[in-house]
Write a protein that binds this DNA or RNA. Structure first.
Lengths: 111, 111
DNA sequence: TTCATAATTCGTCAATGCCCGAAATGACGA
DNA sequence: TCGTCATTTCGGGCATTGACGAATTATGAA
């Protein structure tokens, strides 16, 4: 995870519709949801939503796979993992500070 | 954590300087760093940085406490915790999906 | 009080992001 | 091939964000 990748990911999530899309995909699970189905559920215009999906995809937060005519979008949990570890890197300079209860997060979620 | 709070937090982190500020504070630990010291380390103009600190503070990502003439800024780890849990809420509809290794994250980092 | 340091607020300007309809592309079935 | 469904691309117009210097507020020391 590089600085600019993190900024792209945070920018992608810093938008009402895109955040809703990501959370919807998280709830839906790894199988994925077709683009138009997402648009229908969020009451968004297909063209507008397509732009948002492209941004989420470029940010690495979602994956897109074709199934017949449809394109299924699914969340990339590894991206969230990487993002949090980047954010908390070298927490408290390695010392067990007030962040102690969170310091193990990186190790925990990276498996 | 409400939707708009999450958007404010992601927006705050979706900026080169603000992201650098937060990560600097994470590394520095819970004691905090004075505003001008942050500006000096990041080679940013004080007035510009002040705006960024205000945004981070309003987003709940950092806290500010005065010590003598200085104002010390420190990271709010609880905000990161809440943000991640909001993002992964109801992961895979509760089923043990591919997000299995991350599903316990909320419980893990919330202590 | 008076001065110096620390930090914030304000005003302007440039740049970026967002929405939507219309048109174009890609994939499948008859 | 032809038609249809699913999705993306494009162009225009509006709103928001970001940077910076100058002026302002706040604190502590002489």
């Amino acid at each position: 995870m590089k600085r600019d990748d993190a900024i792209d990911a945070f920018s992608a999530l810093a938008h009402e519709t895109r955040l809703a899309v990501f959370r919807l995909l998280v709830k839906a699970g790894p199988e994925g949801v077709p683009a138009l189905e997402i648009a229908r559920r969020l009451e968004a215009k297909p063209s507008t939503l397509s732009g948002h999906l492209g941004i989420l995809k470029r940010a690495g937060l979602v994956t897109a796979t074709r199934r017949q005519k449809e394109i299924l979008y699914a969340p990339n949990f590894g991206a969230v993992d990487a993002l949090v570890r980047f954010l908390l890197e070298d927490c408290c300079g390695g010392e067990p500070g007030s962040c102690g209860e969170l310091a193990g997060l990186g190790a925990t979620i990276s498996g």
